[in-house]
Amino acid sequence: MTFINYASREINCKIVYYGPGLCGKTTNIQWIHEQASPEKRGKLVSLATETDRTLFFDFLPLDMGMVKGFKVRFHLYTVPGQVFYDASRKLILRGCDGVIFVADSQRARLEANIESIANLATNLKDNGFDIRNIPYVLQLNKRDMPTSAPLGEMERLLRFRNEPMIEAVANKGTGVIETLKACARQILMDLQRN
């Protein structure tokens, strides 16, 4: 749900990074936080466990600049990936404008990716969204791992609506901005249509 404020001339959009545990959701937004200039980025808030696993969410506000005289601000959220945090994941999807699914390319995690997409579909539905038409990007992360599955196989298993599919190595920044941009494009084009 985009918040458009005509008084302060601001558009606020919420983007959620979703995916199985340890797939690199937090790494994506940490990299964006490190790279963004200080005047663009807000504070990165991480509600994590002592071992740095996401407990509730990470949050990063980003001021992107102007579109049609309006200041565009993205609010990036991650969800906790572990299966038992499902209640929290559902809450964080509330009012989202777009979803980035971060898939773990390692062969051993293929099933976890599929389960997580199914879980995303259910949780989106519970929030009144349809995974088939919400702005959505598939990021294939950890492409540099020797155990990663071939691109074609991942596409066949995980891509279901011709969504933008981006290869990434989030800890090196590869594909991170492209992913965000692909999602932002869909959200802003949605605004145009609506």
Partner: peptide, 11 residues
């Protein structure tokens, strides 16, 4: 889709 944008005008 189940979303309605929040649009706030000056007034």
């Amino acid at each position: 889709m189940g979303k309605l944008d929040l649009v706030m005008f000056e007034e």
